[in-house]
Design a protein around this nucleic acid. Structure first.
Lengths: 272, 272
DNA sequence: TTTGCATGTAAACAACCTGTGATCGAGACC
DNA sequence: GGTCTCGATCACAGGTTGTTTACATGCAAA
């Protein structure tokens, strides 16, 4: 499971998508067939997952930054209950699903009381197990959501999604909601965006033919950006195509100033 | 729903929930025997519960202020899935457990995907069903109340979650319950909160389109805040987005007064 | 260079959003 | 049962924003 140490401040234009989108799951089990089927399904869904065959310390689980844990409590022997309790106590935000062979009502009650979110009995469908895990995660996530993306720094501009504002040298650009959304979208993308694309992602529906709204907003943005940061030009027009965001010093050749190193080896499409 | 005061609530296993409330549960089912056994057990536990034999409108469920809903989806016929989806959309904070007769994997997957928290197959032990309901509620609750924290001091205002009141210079603002909850939520968040977000986290269910309740309460809060602490403005409107809480001195450049240190190393952004 | 389009710019209008006061009904409390 | 507080809802005013339109300017192909 890759544990890239990206600092919270999402590096400028890097990170195309939120990393949070991929769910992380660990499975404590020894049933090879079960693990195989489950792994296939999880791969298809794009989840990050890892199987372990024995108890893992709570601290280790913490460091894995999991969203969910699937546990066959029978592989842990009699110490399983204690283990469950310890893990639940240490990671209250972790979704825990017990998936094990036949059990008594008493055992299931005990597991749930100790903090498990759900109990499934093997044999079971991988799909159903995943749904149960999703249901558990869904609730935990609801409140962790405020994990909004961190600030975005490009050129002299700082974009703050949590405040719906952009700043230059400490001063707010006083963007309206829609202006901000467009700037945010552009600043996240280091490629040319067609008008239709911008419109659809900001307005939420298809752009009518001949609609000039995007152009008008780009003008307003340029005006406010120029006023706050006169030495740079940020929004570049690609004739017949759309717009591209990149901080460039006005005088010289379009020199990308911010984050010069983390640019991908992408086909450079700047010209003049 | 009966409201007697038998306090032997003793919600078994040391009630992780807060004392303030007995749990409220509704059951949509027609199985008399099942209902009887369940009711007995719930009475013992001190839960408030009500059984209904047919679909209840989402609005009616809202007014019941439930913690959980147990649903035998088979009593609703083919419209059951729609009903489930509607209820989940309207009450995202409600724990929903489907408890019904034999079913296919596909049905269970569908139910869980639509938003149910768990699926139990009849016949089942009342005790186990209750544990599952508790597990679902526990998850929801964990989100809703990381509270129980100490006092919060922002600007000249002190927020006391333990007393459900806010103070300025030792005098209470005389907030009503709802006013306090909104102020508390806002004061905890140092970012812009959309109205829908505020509504959902305070009221516990989704905001109806066009509902102005949040605005009205913000007005009342501003009024009381202004009266108690005239030199500051606390609740700031972000047009087209929502509200943000931050104590700012009215006259001068809005200087953040409280908690100056725990601000991230971010570009200063206040300014009136 | 000329021509046809695409884009920049500005202003006016309409739609929308928010602040505010008042009213009504439900529930709590006595 | 009566009174009172609180919360929900409505209507209206005023301000802000988004959209539209018109015209000017710039780019690329003929």
């Amino acid at each position: 499971m890759p544990a890239e140490a990206s600092d919270s401040t999402a590096t400028a234009q890097g990170a195309p998508q939120r990393a949070s989108s991929r769910l992380r799951l660990a499975v404590i089990d020894r049933d090879a067939g079960f693990l195989q089927v489950l792994a296939n399904r999880l791969d298809t869904l794009g989840w990050e997952h890892r199987a372990v065959s024995t108890a893992v310390t709570a601290e280790a689980l913490v460091s894995m930054r999991l969203n969910a844990l699937v546990l066959d409590i029978s592989v842990l022997g009699p110490g399983g209950w204690e283990y469950l309790e310890r893990v639940c106590g240490r990671l209250p935000g972790l979704a825990i699903v017990i998936c094990t062979g036949p059990s008594s009502v008493g055992q299931r009650v005990r597991g749930l009381r100790l903090g498990a979110d759900a109990w499934m009995t093997k044999p079971c469908h991988a799909e159903e197990l995943i749904c149960v895990v999703e249901a558990a995660i869904r609730r935990h996530r609801r409140n962790e959501m405020p994990e909004l993306e961190g600030a975005l720094v490009v050129g002299e501009i700082t974009v703050r999604p949590d405040l719906y504002q952009a700043y230059a040298a400490g001063a707010s650009l006083e963007l309206t909601a829609r202006e901000f959304e467009i700037l945010h979208l552009l600043a996240q993308s280091d490629r040319v965006l067609r008008r239709e694309e911008i419109y659809e992602r900001v307005w939420g529906y298809a752009m009518a033919h001949g609609d000039r709204s995007v152009d008008v907003f780009v003008r307003k943005l340029r005006q406010k950006l120029r006023q706050a940061s006169p030495d740079f030009s940020y929004i570049h027009t690609h004739f017949g195509v759309g717009y591209r965001f990149a901080p460039e010093l006005d005088g010289g050749r379009g020199a990308v100033v911010a984050a010069p190193d983390d640019l991908q080896p992408q086909p450079e499409l700047t010209f003049g």
